[in-house]
């Protein structure tokens, strides 16, 4: 037996309209949230990157980095440190200099940890035309594997060294990933644009010095 017709059809229709609207809004939010998800497992825990330019400190939350010098050279050598007693540092074995397979790029930067002590630095040079170069293991003084620690609030200046064919350089940037221990996941990373390109870059590369010393890292004024 059919019931009596609904006495309030208008209310039911507006109720349906609000349901449709609410569903549409929720659906849009869902799609937006889904688009923000990172699907690749590896990318999800990759270092979190901040970018900036060489003329200013770049804040990567767990550390800040400021590039103070970019040098091009045909060969590099390790500057030896002070001996006991604080005598004159000798200029290092310039005859132990290593010739580049291309050109050496020596980037000096001040790295200051923010809240926790960090120990390891991994650096990469992005040429700006699609290739990435890792830092060279040739120099013992360069920032790299086990070295001195970066304490919060205390800037430490060190160099990272790259070797590459000069024709690959277009508009280089250096990525610094500074972390503690062995785990790089979700660590801080800063991509610093060296602000060198075109004729300025070419002039710098052509004027590459014969030999550049790579100093040991040292703490700087806070």
């Amino acid at each position: 037996m059919r019931a009596a017709p609904d006495p309030r059809p208008a209310r039911r229709r507006s109720g349906r309209a609000s349901t449709v609207l609410a569903s549409a809004v929720l659906l849009a939010l869902l799609l937006g949230a889904q688009a923000l998800r990172i699907h690749d497992d590896e990318d999800r825990t990759a270092p979190i990157e901040a970018s900036g330019a060489a003329s200013e400190p770049v804040d990567a939350r767990s550390f800040t980095v400021e590039v103070v010098d970019v040098a091009f050279a045909r060969s590099v050598y390790d500057e030896s440190g002070f001996s006991f007693g604080g005598d004159e540092a000798d200029a290092g074995a310039a005859d132990g200099a290593v010739e580049a397979n291309g050109v050496w790029v020596v980037v000096t930067a001040d790295i200051t940890a923010a809240e926790r002590t960090l120990e390891r630095v991994e650096a990469e040079l992005e040429t700006g035309e699609g290739t990435t170069y890792g830092s060279s293991g040739v120099s013992m003084n360069a920032l790299g594997s086990i070295g001195d620690a970066f304490s919060p609030g205390i800037p430490r200046r060190g160099a990272v060294v790259f070797e590459l064919p000069p024709e690959r350089l277009a508009s280089p940037s250096v990525r610094f990933n500074v972390f503690s221990g062995l785990d790089r996941r979700l660590s801080g990373s800063a991509l610093v644009d060296l602000e060198l390109s075109g004729s300025e870059l070419k002039k710098a590369v052509d004027g590459a010095e014969e030999a550049v010393a790579v100093p040991q890292s040292e703490i700087r004024k806070a």
Partner: peptide, 11 residues
């Protein structure tokens, strides 16, 4: 020295 990483496009 043993090779660590082989860098791109550098013979």
């Amino acid at each position: 020295t043993e090779l660590g990483d082989l860098q791109p496009k550098m013979p």
